[in-house]
Nucleic acid binder design. Structure first.
Lengths: 341, 341
DNA sequence: CTGAAAGCGCTTACAG
DNA sequence: CTGAAAGCGCTTACAG
């Protein structure tokens, strides 16, 4: 069944030349190998004519390169990771790479398994959004000399290239904005996680609160929780902290749960309570009131990720200083944090 | 640099046995090949000890199987395709497959290129959300005997397994609901596309309108448009059809543009205009008013996709009747389509 | 019960 | 200027 696959051997036979010559011509090394222009033309013409495509797997086995990069994110269905994955794919494609993706759902063991799988399939580089506890696994991959870029959150104590955003600074700015709008008791809803980006965001919050001699009121929920768990925790938190007049959500899905909770409690935004959130969503600006968000620059982030990866691919991963590139996010102020006079 | 890779040859040498014996043991064929339990145990123990992992690429080259499936969607960052991709990945993983994904952004040539790339990398099966014009390319892949499942929209005249939803029926139900709520002039906003799912949705609309002797008022926009184009077209459409008192959006991103337009025009939902949309979004239920949606069952869809794919993988793609499986969607009525008395 | 050998489809030193 | 040959790391008829 199916078409019988043509190989360079068949082409070589057709022209009565060696396989190697065909291989060189196909790989554009005809000139370098001083193969006659005429033969080159004839072979390429034939290749075109019969629609020959080299067998990638065989090539990969021979060269050790697979022309694919592995992308490990938290959740490909997420409104932040999905769109960034699209950008990454577009860039990868323009560089001749395919993308193999996988979602960890925050599970460390899962992430380690995925990484192992990627290693076995010989991806040429890795873009990793690591859950906590992946330090060793990532180091192991790097020891093999493969390029790795860590994204979104840092990996404690691992010498590796990192691309992220100014979490602390921009969260600080957002909280200062809340203060300036007259909110007196800002609650911070985050994950119970030591992920660096979450810690940084929390620090930005603390910095703003401290500076204004306010009270830190923080709710940390488990990532594994489902939405109704999130909602229950937020509800209870609001009941225990009646004085809270604004909420900052450290990531998008927490905000979704939060908005639902506020609606259930019939709290009005921003009169009863102000709302701001880390990560933009197409629909936040369409809410009534529109939600204040912190927008990460997807285009710039994906660009930085690839530039870094490419440098590594060219230079190899040894003897080069590892870079930590911070692409600033933008605070988008909307009505959910503007107190009407 | 890096660890030097261990191969089955090294293991064979270590035990003074043949590579083939090692291969059989590793692949669980020891019993079948009548290799002594004792040797099997020793070899497996050693494999474990040195952390040997077979080289997937080499295995693939030898077997012709890559243990990966190619997923071609419209846009991995989309609120429908992203989450379904996650489900598909989870199922693939549980079956021992990796997923290679790629987004077409509705571009036929892009889709064909992706398909070609997937063929070259020897994926074992394809899940395709095809743009129009992919008929030939898909048929070509099928002629190679590879399993293909078409998803979301059908491919005209191609004998292939298809998984989709009851587009016409459920859109009809949604429009009938609008009629029952007293909306008199329902506008339908869709893509200018012959994709089957869009045609079916339009037909569902027409069926409901005809049945109630209403006027069909349809806006078809180009997929390639960006959001501000969508907005302008919708705005103009509303100006030209002042009598329209409800809008049904045939897909999610059109609704986003539509909601923004309605906000700009200061139209109140549902008093001035009712709103319903095909495809659920986490945030639609949190709008004020909450938006009526048609929710596709992601879990069931991904399950059906995989069952079908698996059957094909087992049976081969010949001589079997192709199936067309329709998984019904659900209408979720919310305030955006309920006329207050 | 086990092994030698050919083959998957390429690439690339090496030799002339 | 070009080709023969070894090798990438596996699998699997085949032979004994």
């Amino acid at each position: 069944m199916g078409v019988k696959k043509i190989s360079i051997y068949d082409i070589a036979k057709h022209f009565q030349i060696a396989k190697s010559t065909v291989s060189f011509i196909i790989n554009g090394k005809a000139e370098e190998r001083r193969i006659s222009k005429e033969l080159e033309k004839r072979v390429l013409g034939y290749v075109e004519e019969i629609g020959f495509k080299p067998h990638y797997l065989a090539r990969s086995l021979a060269t050790g390169k697979s022309n694919s990069i592995g992308l490990i994110v938290e959740n490909i269905g997420d409104s932040f990771f999905g769109p960034i994955a699209l950008k990454i794919e577009e860039r990868a494609k323009s560089m001749g790479y395919r993308v193999v993706y996988s979602s960890t759902l925050g599970n460390t063991q899962e992430a380690i398994d995925i990484l192992k799988l990627f290693r076995e399939t010989q991806v040429d580089g890795y873009i990793i959004v690591p859950p906590v506890g992946m330090e060793e696994a990532v180091e192991e991959v790097m020891r093999e000399g493969k390029p790795v870029v860590v994204f979104d959150r840092m990996l404690d104590g691992v010498q590796v290239d990192y691309i992220g955003t100014n979490n602390q600074e921009i969260t600080y700015a957002a909280c200062m904005h809340l203060v300036e709008e007259g909110f007196k008791n800002i609650g911070f809803v985050t994950l119970d996680s030591s992920q660096s980006q979450m810690v940084e965001r929390l620090n930005g919050y603390k910095q703003a609160i401290d500076q204004n001699n306010g009270n830190e009121v923080v709710l940390s929920v488990n990532y594994c929780s489902n939405r109704s768990d999130y909602k229950n925790e937020i509800k209870q938190f609001l009941q225990e902290h009646q004085q809270v007049d604004a909420l900052f959500f450290a990531t998008n899905y927490l905000c979704v749960a939060g908005l639902e909770t506020l609606r259930d409690l019939q709290k009005h935004i921003p009169e009863d309570i102000g709302v701001a959130v880390f990560d933009e969503n197409d629909l936040f600006r369409l809410f009534d009131p529109a939600i204040t968000t912190i927008e990460q620059p997807l285009e710039d982030l994906s660009k930085a990720i690839f530039q870094t990866l490419q440098k590594r691919i060219l230079r190899g991963s040894n003897r080069v200083v590892y870079t930590k590139k911070i692409i600033p996010s933008r605070l988008i102020v909307r009505q959910s944090t503007i107190r009407r006079k």
